[in-house]
Each structure stands twice: as C-alpha cells, then as structure tokens.
Nucleic acid binder design. Sequence first.
DNA 1: CATAACGCGGACTATAATGATCCGCGTTAT
DNA 2: ATAACGCGGATCATTATAGTCCGCGTTATG
Lengths: 172, 172
Amino acid sequence: MAHITAGVEYALHCLLWLVDSPGAPLSSRDLADFQGISPSFLAKVFPKLEKAGIVASSEGVRGGYRLAKRPEAISVLAVVDAIEGEKPLFDCQEIRGRCAAFGGRPPAWATKGVCAIHAVMLRAEKAMRDSLESQTLADIAGTLERKMPPEFSEEVRRWVEERTEARIRGKA
Amino acid sequence: MAHITAGVEYALHCLLWLVDSPGAPLSSRDLADFQGISPSFLAKVFPKLEKAGIVASSEGVRGGYRLAKRPEAISVLAVVDAIEGEKPLFDCQEIRGRCAAFGGRPPAWATKGVCAIHAVMLRAEKAMRDSLESQTLADIAGTLERKMPPEFSEEVRRWVEERTEARIRGKA
DNA sequence: CATAACGCGGACTATAATGATCCGCGTTAT
DNA sequence: ATAACGCGGATCATTATAGTCCGCGTTATG
C-alpha cells in the first residue's frame, strides 16, 4: 500500500476538471462516472476537500462542487493533507526508552528531545512535504493543457451534454 | 499506518548497537530482548538486511550478525529499501486513460509519458529519498554518542554479561 | 558426539487501514 | 411534489503489517 492513497489521486484528477469548469458546479457523481472511478467512494472524498477550504459545495438539484480558490493557490500538499489528515511518514515507537539496561525506568538523557532515528525521518518527511507544497494545481493543469489537443475541450462538452439529455430522456 | 514501517525502525536501532559492537556478532534474539521488541519479528527483519549486504551473518552457536560495511557507507535509504523493498510513495492507477469521453480507447496523447499527477508524486518521492540517502548510520551513531554518558557503555557490557551467566546457570 | 544456540525460511494468525458500498436525512431547482 | 444533489453513519471486503510458530541445517562447546 502506498503512503499517498487513491483518495488523493481521485481528488487531484477531479480538481483538474474543476479548473476547466469555472462556471456551473460539477457533481461528484458526474465526476466519478466521467473518470471511471467509484462514485460512492468519491462522495466520501469531496467533503474533506470542502472542510479544507479547497472546494465549495452547493446543495440541491444542479448542485455540486467548484474550486474555492484560484488553482495557483492550491498546493498538492494541501490536497494530500486534506485527504490523509497529516498522516506521518514514520511512527516512532520510542524504542530508545525500552532498553533492558534501564530496567523499566529510562534516565532523562535517553528520552530527552527527539529520537535520533525519528529526526532522520522527520527531515525526509519535510523534504517530501516541501516538494509537494511547491507544486500547485495550476502547474499540473498547465502541463495537461500542453498535451491536450484543442479539439478535446469540445469533446468533453459534448459528453456532458449527452449525459444531461440522457437523464431527461430517462425521465420521460 | 505509516509508510516507513516498524521493521525499518527496529533495523536501525539494532544496527546502531552493531556499530558499538565491532567484535563478536550479536544474535537477533539478544538484540530483541535488549530493546524490548519482538524476537520473532526481528528474526524476519535481519535476513533482509543480510541480502542487501548491510550485515553479515554467522551461523551456529555464538553466531549472529555484524555490520558488513563501515557505518559511514550505510545510508538510511539503503536500510529502508532493504526492508520495504523500494515500496513507492504513490501508486498511479492511470485514471487519465479511463475518461469516458475516450469510450474505452484512449488516444495516444492522453497516455503518453508519465501521468502529470504521478510526476508530482515522483518528484516528492525523490526529495524524500535524497534526504534519506544523505544520512548514514555513522551520523546517527554520532548524535547518540553525544547524548550518552560515558558510563553507559559499561552498563551495557554488564547487562550482556549477566544474561550470558544466567543462561549458563539455567543450563545447570 | 550430543546438545543447545544460532540463522533460515515457510506457514500461519490477528489487527488495522484502505477502498468501496448502502442507506437515510436535509436541501433545492424544476 | 419530485428528483437530483450533498452529508454523514454503518458496514463490508481486501490487503498490508506485525507478530507467532515450527522444522531444518549449521556450529561451538562440554
């Protein structure tokens, strides 16, 4: 299992679609179907993004989500923390204090400050987080825009239209 | 659950004791008891360190493990990879190719190269790994040496002695 | 030379996290 | 009034981790 989980992956892919859709909000259901991922799982992801102030929701029919900030103001780190809840890279179990030579009562010098091994991991975690913080949603969107052919936006618009019509037909 | 697991934590703590014991090999059983961790679990960790060329084993009575390299030549990254097996930080599921607008057959431009989101994660992972690689066992041992009072080495020696004697007494 | 302390490795179990589903409630456009 | 939404709780299946157990081959030592 990876440290950065599928929830983050789904969230970022969805946020990229929201970047391209500054008008009407998109529903989590549509976003899931459009990308071939689980709608019910995605429905658990979005409230976390909303609590973190990354997206804003509108309830009721034709409700959904839109970005709550400019894409340049949304770092990948913010998304990771919103979904994972600041999960640490390493969980120090304070082995240093359990040394049998202490007989159950470790001296102050042994447990003072951060465990030396933990410190190593915290430095690595900071390097990772700094990297994630330096990259924003706008950066990723820019990369994609350079890959995507100009016709594609039109294709997407068509897909959304067809789906809306299909819903209306289903009603009738 | 943390990305860097207890196996790595146990391994590093043990390796630090091996740094201070360049003479006779230490058994995984003694290392576990000495640090209050599971002996059977530690017995699963050491073969991985051995396969990675970090420790060398000697079999039979009075056997055990010793460092296979100088502490300066053992990076924390090497230990992490030995135990975790190069586990990726992020597992890209190639969502980009599932877009419903592609109708099951994504065009070449969509799946060419590394996924933009994956690329972000790979950069963060590299930052983490670079940090882990820059820190060696000798660095950590140095930090500890500055904390430990000079008498402590003697206390440890006494503990090992007492345990050996206890084994002999148990035999009689 | 028999024994006990070792490492080695496979099979196995328990627990926790993840990914995912389902249901009922409140809100709101049509 | 209805259906499409978001929201949140309960639940479930799968997987990874942490840990155990057992049997085998090796080797120092009495």
